[in-house]
C-alpha cells in the first residue's frame, strides 16, 4: 500500500477485536468505515466504545483481531510492536481526541502548538490559532484552567491542525453544553466536505448522530448489537405499542419488550410488522429506540425484573 493521500477504500477495517481485562470482555468486534463517511459508535457507558477505539489506535493490547487504518492492514500483534516508518506516517494522518484529556495540565495553551507542531510534517500553526479563536478557547492560561468543553475544543484544534484524513473522536460531546456540542458537530461537518476525510465519532447521546453519521455501530456489553448504514437502521426497525397483552407469537418478535399497566411496547423488525394487528400502533423507530431496546434485549433478566 502506498502512502498516497487518496485511494484507500477503507479508513478503518478491523476484525475480531477481542480483549479481556478485569471483568470486561470485548468480544470479536468488527469495525468498518469506508473512506469519505462518518461512523457513529453508540452504546451505554461501559459498552466498550473506548476500549474499541483504543484497540484501533494500538493503545491497548488485544488477544485477537486485526486492525487496518487508512488502507493498511496491521495485525494486532504487530501493531503492538515498534513503530515502522510506514506506521508513523499513517499516524500523522490520524487526528485523535480521547475521552480523557491527554494534555499536560501545566502547559500554557499559547505554547502548545509550538511544542506539538514539530512532531507533524503537515502542522498548520495558523489553522491551530484560527480554531482556538473560533472556539473562543482562552490562550493566556494553562491547560488545567480550561473548562471541560474548552479542553475538548483544544484537543480537537490540535487534532485538526496537523491536517489528518481520519478523525477518531471518543465522546467529544460528553459533558458539554448544547452550544459547544453543536460547535463540535459543525466542525465535523466542515471536515467532511473533503471527500478524502473520514470520522469515527463515539457518543452516548444518539441525537448527536442525527444528520451527521452515515453508518452506525451499536455496542452493548462488549459486543456489536448493530452495525450498518443509518438508513438501514431506520428501515430495519420500527416501534410498536399496544394495549393489553401481546400474544405469544408477537411477544417473541418484540426486542426489549416493556410492559406497563395498560399495555406493552418495544422495538420490532419491520419484517415482523404483519404479526401485529390493528389494535397496535407501529411507528418509525428513532436511533435512541434502537439503542435502548437492543441493549435491553441483550440482558433478558432486566425485562423479567421489570415485571
Amino acid at each position: 500500500m502506498t502512502d498516497g493521500r487518496a485511494g484507500a477504500e477503507f479508513a478503518i477495517r478491523a476484525t475480531g477485536l477481542t480483549r479481556r481485562a478485569g471483568g470486561f470482555l470485548l468480544d470479536r468486534v468488527d469495525v468498518e468505515l469506508p473512506t469519505g463517511y462518518v461512523l457513529g459508535m453508540v452504546g451505554a457507558n461501559g459498552a466498550g466504545k473506548t476500549t474499541t477505539i483504543k484497540a484501533l489506535l494500538g493503545l491497548v493490547t488485544c488477544e485477537a483481531g486485526s486492525v487496518g487504518l487508512l488502507g493498511s492492514d496491521v495485525a494486532v500483534r504487530d501493531a503492538n510492536g515498534s513503530d515502522t516508518a510506514d506506521r508513523a506516517a499513517r499516524k500523522e494522518r490520524i487526528g485523535v481526541v480521547l475521552d480523557q484529556p491527554f494534555l499536560a495540565p501545566r502547559w500554557h495553551v499559547r505554547r502548545l502548538g509550538r511544542i506539538v507542531g514539530p512532531f507533524y510534517s503537515r502542522w498548520d500553526q495558523d489553522r491551530f490559532d484560527r480554531l482556538l479563536r473560533r472556539f473562543r478557547v482562552p490562550t493566556d492560561g494553562r491547560v488545567e484552567s480550561l473548562s471541560r468543553g474548552q479542553g475538548t475544543k483544544l484537543s480537537l484544534a490540535l487534532a485538526l491542525a496537523h491536517d489528518p484524513d481520519l478523525l477518531i473522536l471518543d465522546e467529544p460531546t460528553s459533558g458539554l453544553d448544547p452550544v459547544s456540542r453543536a460547535d463540535i458537530v459543525d466542525l465535523v461537518r466542515e471536515f467532511m466536505v473533503d471527500e478524502r476525510h473520514s470520522v469515527l465519532f463515539s457518543t452516548h447521546i444518539t441525537s448527536d448522530l442525527e444528520g451527521l453519521a452515515d453508518y452506525v455501530q451499536i455496542l452493548d456489553e462488549g459486543t456489536t448489537a448493530f452495525r450498518g448504514g443509518i438508513d438501514r437502521l431506520h428501515e430495519e426497525f420500527a416501534y410498536v405499542r399496544g394495549v393489553g397483552e401481546p400474544d405469544v407469537r408477537s411477544a417473541s418478535a418484540i426486542i426489549g419488550l416493556r410492559r406497563s399497566r395498560n399495555g406493552f411496547e418495544g422495538l420490532i423488525r419491520t419484517d415482523d410488522s404483519a404479526l401485529f394487528g390493528p389494535e397496535t400502533e407501529i411507528t418509525a423507530a428513532t436511533t435512541d429506540d434502537v439503542v435502548v431496546h437492543v441493549a435491553r434485549s441483550h440482558r433478558p433478566t432486566d425485562t423479567e425484573e421489570a415485571l
Binding site: V38, R189, E190, M192, V193, G211, D214, G229, I230, D231
Partner: peptide
C-alpha cells in the same frame, strides 16, 4: 451543488444527499 458542501450546509448526512 457539491454533494458534500450541501450535506454540511443542510446539516444532513453525506449518505442522505448521495441517495
Amino acid at each position: 451543488p457539491s454533494l458534500r458542501r450541501l450535506a454540511a450546509d443542510l446539516r444532513v448526512s453525506i449518505m442522505t444527499v448521495t441517495r
